[in-house]
């Protein structure tokens, strides 16, 4: 049996708009991945722990509230603290272009802005996740 890509889609912070996250989860499922969806209002600790317990390859973070500069880097930091820096973290949602360099510097490997297609995200994951 071949390896299956496992992805965690999570919404850190307080906004309750999860349509986007659900669309992504659905698209990744249809691309044959196992997607763990943890729902809205997650703390960075909850997200990082779930990523580790579920042994995912990728974490996708979605935020529409403007708290991304604070919350996204925290998820990466906690993963590092727990020696899980190999888990790829990407983000999406309402994120101003000016914030992107800072987020990338903090270890969020890619940011998908409104208008990005689900195809782009699937391709990105396939390109960046190597399963033994």
């Amino acid at each position: 049996m071949a390896r299956k890509i496992r992805v965690l889609i999570a919404k850190p912070g307080l906004d309750g708009h999860d349509r986007g996250a659900k669309v992504i989860a659905r698209a990744l499922r249809d691309a044959g991945m196992e997607v763990i969806y943890t729902g809205i209002r997650q703390t960075p600790e909850q997200i990082a722990n779930a990523a580790i317990q579920e042994d995912v390859d990728v974490v996708g973070l979605s935020s529409l509230s403007g708290a991304h500069n604070n919350l996204f880097p925290k998820v990466v930091q906690i993963l590092r603290d727990k020696k899980a820096e190999d888990i790829l973290v990407f983000g999406g949602g309402i994120i101003p272009v000016d914030d992107i360099p800072g987020l990338k510097k903090a270890g969020i490997r890619e940011i998908f802005q409104p208008g990005a297609s689900t195809e782009d995200i699937i391709k990105y994951i396939h390109r960046n996740v190597q399963l033994e």
Binding site: R29, E34, V35, I36
Partner: peptide
């Protein structure tokens, strides 16, 4: 598709 959404968490 062989994919899944795991939502019990």
């Amino acid at each position: 598709t062989g994919g899944a959404i795991l939502g019990d968490r």
